[in-house]
């Protein structure tokens, strides 16, 4: 077992874990944070996307021990005092989801993208979400939602 200390959604957490424990399982099974989904489990679909030190990563391909000493943000950590994060609100407003399975990963990828490119073009949004698959193929409204969130953050 290996001792880890991870800051998750601003809260310091520590645990003794098996080195082979994946970050997504640490979040879901140990901490009960179940927004990040396990989809393809092969670094393709992006449903498990979380922020690691502010940058989007696929938590099915990060060991929990690799996150030790770092900051993780999940979808649960986005909203404060019951207020939706602008990206979450834009997804709701623009119907950026159908079945909802890809949504937490899409939202985290979008938050990461807007941190790097605050005013993306539509092409930049599409490229920025290249690592996230929506099997309902609801990409159009997802892109509209991210563009709307970008303009809202500016306003």
């Amino acid at each position: 077992m290996t001792h880890i200390e991870v800051t998750v959604n601003g809260e310091k957490r520590s645990a003794e874990v098996e080195p082979r424990l994946l970050l997504v399982h640490y979040l879901r099974d140990h901490l009960g944070l179940r927004a990040a989904n396990v989809g393809c489990d092969t670094t393709s679909c992006g449903a498990c996307t979380v922020l690691l030190d502010g940058k989007s990563v696929k938590s099915c391909t990060v060991l929990a021990v690799q996150a030790s000493g770092h900051e993780v943000t999940t979808t649960e950590g986005l909203s404060a005092d019951g207020e939706l994060h602008p990206v979450q609100a834009a997804f709701r407003q623009h119907h950026g989801l159908q079945c909802g399975f890809c949504t937490p990963g899409m939202v985290m990828a979008a938050v990461g993208l807007l941190a790097e490119i605050p005013h993306p073009t539509e092409a930049q949004v599409r490229e920025g979400l290249e690592g996230n698959l929506c099997r309902c193929t609801g990409y159009h409204n997802i892109v509209q939602a991210v563009l709307a969130a970008a303009s809202e953050v500016t306003a």
Partner: peptide, 8 residues
Amino acid sequence: GDPQIRHR
């Protein structure tokens, strides 16, 4: 790959 992969 994609942005998440390039971050790691």
